[in-house]
Amino acid sequence: MPNALLALMAVFVPLSLVTIGGGQSAIADMQRQVVEVQHWMTQAQFVDAFAISRMAPGPGSLLVTLIGWHVAGFWGAVVATLAIFGPTAFMIYGVAHLWSRYEGARWQRALELGLRPVAAGLILAAVYVLMLTLDGGWLARLIALASTGALMLTRINPLALIAIGAAIYIGLHAALPA
């Protein structure tokens, strides 16, 4: 079904180019394209796929892999994944290459120093938004803060941290009156 594959590319390649600062910014547009324009999924199916992409480990943008799979099976998944991750991969590759080549150049130091506060602001803003929208209210926020403290003060392994966080959350949820 080459038509479906082409359509997947036509939707996801342009989306991949506008995802500055992470894939989350493209979700709303993706939903519009997939549900309202292309009618590849119903709203409920899209919401399910979104939930799965949040549940699964790995990049959240693998949501597109699920959409591709839904539209055209194996090759749909492959094409959609390459469409969202591929084009910009060459861009960062080229920049990484130039970076090593012109190590220490003035423009490079300027970019490093100049982008640093922007990067820090972006990460903290993302955390802030996540904190506001976290399912589970104050309990979840408390766990987020405790986890931050544990990471900064100890050498705990992230996987252990996540497992402990999930276990504590389940435990407290069971212990506290709803």
Partner: peptide, 19 residues
């Protein structure tokens, strides 16, 4: 519940990186 807890703990990774 497990996923909500994991997501909460994972914020720590982002926040500590942000700090």
């Amino acid at each position: 519940l497990a996923l909500d807890g994991a997501a909460a703990a994972a914020i720590g990774l982002s926040l500590s990186m942000g700090l």
